[in-house]
Amino acid sequence: MVRSRDDIVRTIGKPLLADDERVKISCRNVNVYYGEKRAIREVSVDIAEQEVTAFIGPSGCGKSTFLRCINRMNDTIKSCRVEGEITLDREDIYDRNVDPVLLRARIGMVFQKPNPFPKSIFENVAYGPRIHGLARNKSELDEIVITSLEKAGLFSEVKDQLDHPGTGLSGGQQQRLCIARAISVQPEVILMDEPCSALDPIATAKIEELIDELRRNFTIIIVTHSMQQAARVSQRTAFFHLGNLVEVDDTNTIFVNPEHKLTQDYITGRYG
């Protein structure tokens, strides 16, 4: 087992995509610091369009930190500093001219713990479109809300209680509500930070099905602790370890035939 961080110099597997057309997000030599501490070192990876990319790795490996760089959520943490280049459609998202608010309208996010607003179900989904001015009138807004809830597979369950508080739903329903909220502004990318870690297996299965559905319209990056989940929902998998991106490849390859010893050990459950 590799103990030192410097053992890994270069990511192995296929971190960069050969086909330029498929690249939605590309990251080059990304370093993230919390104060003096480097949490992510020299990560370079491409994220393909309309595909699910899973980030896996043991706790504290930096996968969530890296995910939060992609929609500049780390901007809110004062001590956090990001170096390197991350592009969305070949446009640097850390460019001075890029507005993080606009960026987050293009890159939505679903969090680990379901965090619906303490408002009605309708208001939860309508909030995004409303602040961005996406609906010209009430009926358009209604339509956006209903479509978003339908896409999130929640509409049939809540259609009679749209005015009830979103916080009154079950955990799994709350998380789907958060997904509906994220897709209501029609982002191009959805980041999911361990979306099922607070849910029971049945709710998890529903979310996983949903992710598979959403793949058709959105580019999805999911951080997960569960290797089975990564294997089930993703097309490509990236394995992080101690802030390094160890190996990236097609999910099949990673799980069946990993190249790196660390990846192999993690996947076979020798540590994690």
């Binding site: 929609n71 959520m73 809110t76 987050r104 679903v110 965090n115 303490p118 909030y127 602040i131 502004v185």
Partner: peptide
């Protein structure tokens, strides 16, 4: 007020001001 509420608002593209005024302040 739990930070998850602020993150939720920022996550759908609310500005800092909107997140505070629409979500944090009422709570």
């Amino acid at each position: 007020v739990p930070p998850s509420i602020r993150e939720g608002a920022l996550g759908v593209g609310a500005s800092k001001m909107q997140a505070v005024m629409h979500h944090v302040l009422p709570l």
